[in-house]
Amino acid sequence: MPGGLLTDLYELNMAASYLRRGMDRTATFSLFVRGLPKARGFLVAAGLESCLELLESFSFTGVELEALGSMGFDDRALSDFSTLRFQGEVWAVPEGRIVYSEEPVLEVTAPIAIAQLVETVLLNQITLHTTLASKAARYAIAAEGRRLVEFAFRRTHGLEAAMAVARASALAGFTATSNVEAASRYGLDVAGTMAHSFIESFPTEGEAFRAFAEDHPGRTTFLVDTYDTLGGVRAAIDTIHDLGLGGELGVRLDSGDLDALARGARALLDDAGLTHAHIFASGGLDELEVHELVRAGAPVDAFGIGTQLGVSADAPYIDSVYKLVEFGGRAVMK
């Protein structure tokens, strides 16, 4: 996608005036966050790769120029836009690094028209990816080394956000994603079990477990809370023993008192000689709840994280800005 229309109208208005008046001196714009969201002591920089891809492809196609003409731009403006390409320099904090408020995350130095035009899309990408990576980092800290799997696809605000959260969570230390497209696109590990609907589609929970284990012998983590959670653990144990399953085994808890249920599940698994079977917990967890479970010593080996991460529920945006700091060798500030 060339990307010339990925901007706000006022950027085009300003760029047209700069170009018409021959204002082609170099400008430097600095992108930073004015203040940290509440309950955030730091941010994790992310989104640089997509920014660079957009800058490298920036141009206006014939169709896009026609669209601008229909919006009121005259032939002179369209002619000036037609030859625009990004020719400049980008300085940025590497993705995955900690950043703070008032600290430049990315700076663009280029002729003022093009540097102005890319403001909107750079803010869009850095805001989205940094917001999500920062939220994911909080989970990584809370989990204290336990595995984290990103489950947010179905609750994100659109497809682009789903791809962004899978990538950002991997950047922050998550071990896998449920998002198949993101796993393929970014080379991530993919993980998933089954839904309650699968269990409900069989006459009994045990029959569902057996069918799943026979069909997917390498993915035998059983969702045990459809009916009675500890009863589900017993049914999973019976299936494992009946089929002689080995390798990586586990049970998933998706509701209820996860601390108490994890302890009960661990006791049943250990008593059955399945000390190597893991316990996977999910169910709308935020990072504070993960922290509480870990600090309480709940025997949870991995967490599935969805909605709260996918929309960064407690801090859904950052106050990012893109300010002109130098023009034609002259420092400026608002």
Rank of each mutant, 00 (worst) to 15 (best):
A208Q: 07
M1V: 08
A15H: 04
T26C: 12
A140K: 09
V180Q: 09
A67R: 13
A166F: 10
K334F: 04
F280H: 08
T83K: 14
G283F: 02
G173F: 00
A281S: 15
G297A: 14
D271A: 11
Q125G: 06
L65Q: 10
E287G: 02
S57I: 09
A113R: 03
R295D: 14
A172N: 03
A195R: 10
T193A: 12
D24A: 15
V325D: 04
L159H: 10
L253C: 10
A262F: 03
K38N: 12
G247A: 15
V118M: 04
A208F: 04
V311K: 01
S82Q: 14
G310R: 01
S79L: 12
L12N: 06
D254Y: 05
G273W: 03
L12M: 10
V44Q: 01
Y317H: 15
G145C: 06
E292C: 07
G232I: 06
R330Y: 07
G96I: 04
Q87T: 10
M71P: 06
T275K: 11
H157Y: 11
D215L: 13
L48F: 04
A152Y: 03
R20A: 12
A161W: 00
E49P: 01
V251K: 01
A15D: 07
T109W: 05
E207H: 06
T28V: 15
I112K: 02
V332D: 08
F86P: 07
G306Q: 03
R154H: 11
A331M: 14
S169F: 03
A183R: 00
A161G: 04
D228R: 14
K323A: 10
T221G: 08
N13C: 07
R97C: 13
G145V: 04
G3N: 02
M163P: 00
A195S: 15
H196A: 14
S255T: 08
Y100P: 11
S70H: 13
D74R: 12
M23N: 10
